Computed example of a mutant assay.
Amino acid sequence: MLEPMVLLALAGVGMLAGFVDAVAGGGGMITVPALLSAGLPPISALATNKMQSSIGTAMAVLTYWRRGFVSVRALVPSVATTLAGSLIGALIVKQIDTSVLNVAVPIALIAIALYFLFAPSLSDADRASRLAFPRWVPVLGFVIGFYDGVFGPGTGSFFTIGFVLLFGLGITRATGNTKLLNLTSNLAALVIFIIGGDVVWQAAIVMAGGQVIGGYVGARAGIRFGAKLIRPLVVVVSIAMALKLLLWP
């Protein structure tokens, strides 16, 4: 049993992480250390984090969708392929050497940060798509879903950059669509954690409450301020994740 003050602190952490995650992703950088500090074993911290963050992401998805920034019908095939990729990745992760990702992923995240920092054309306006959306977004979903099942950090950033670079979406629409596919990839790992009995429900429930608030406020802020908020926050979060992976893998 966790003490009431610890649970209250975790609820606040969930709220902050929900806000950050709804705008730029990377909320796990805040919640996982907090759960470990609360005394949870590493596997329980990861499982509980997946549970509570999924609630916050779901709230963000709902908020973006209600404002017209998520193309749910167009993404149905991609939801299926993302789920399949994540499940396959989670099931075979123990058979794969992921050590190379400890270097490759931080480099990719820094490249994303530099692109979002310096690309002059990044805005909320849609541009011409380089690839056919119906044919290639499911492929993007499978590949990044598989990565999320195998490794995970930076999944939201990779989805966002894919929607912006390959499919010409404005930053706010890219973020909204990212949230739906990110939620899908999280659910695959979450099912495995729940079956394994790894979720600490007491912590997950109070953090989920904070995530609902943070996810809603973050999504509303992302919609209201658009690229002015999302762009710098993606830069900060991507660099922070890269440094975390390089210094504390």
Rank of each mutant, 00 (worst) to 15 (best):
A104V: 15
V61F: 06
S44K: 07
L75W: 04
S78Q: 07
D97L: 11
R66I: 10
T81S: 10
P106M: 12
R67I: 03
R127A: 11
Q95D: 09
T81Y: 01
F69W: 10
S99K: 13
R127E: 09
A108E: 05
I88L: 15
L46E: 01
I55Q: 06
I55T: 11
L83N: 00
L83W: 03
T57A: 09
S99L: 05
G56Q: 05
G56A: 13
V93F: 07
N49C: 07
L46Q: 04
L109V: 00
R67S: 14
S99D: 12
V105D: 00
M59P: 00
T57C: 09
D126N: 15
S129P: 01
L114E: 04
V103G: 06
A90T: 15
V61D: 05
W65H: 11
V61Y: 03
D126S: 14
P120F: 09
M59R: 02
A119F: 05
I92V: 15
S44M: 07
W65P: 00
M59W: 07
R67H: 15
L75A: 10
A80L: 15
A128K: 09
Y64E: 10
S99V: 07
L62W: 09
F116E: 01
A45S: 10
I96P: 00
Y64F: 15
N49Y: 04
V61Q: 09
L101P: 00
I112H: 01
L101Y: 01
I96S: 01
L62C: 08
L46M: 13
K94S: 13
L117F: 13
F116L: 13
I112F: 04
S129C: 04
P106Y: 06
A58S: 10
K50A: 12
N49W: 05
R73Q: 11
N49T: 11
M51R: 03
S123A: 06
M51W: 12
S44L: 04
L117R: 14
V70A: 03
S123P: 01
W65F: 12
V61S: 07
F69P: 00
F69Q: 09
A47L: 06
M51D: 04
S99E: 11
S129A: 14
A90H: 05
Y115R: 06
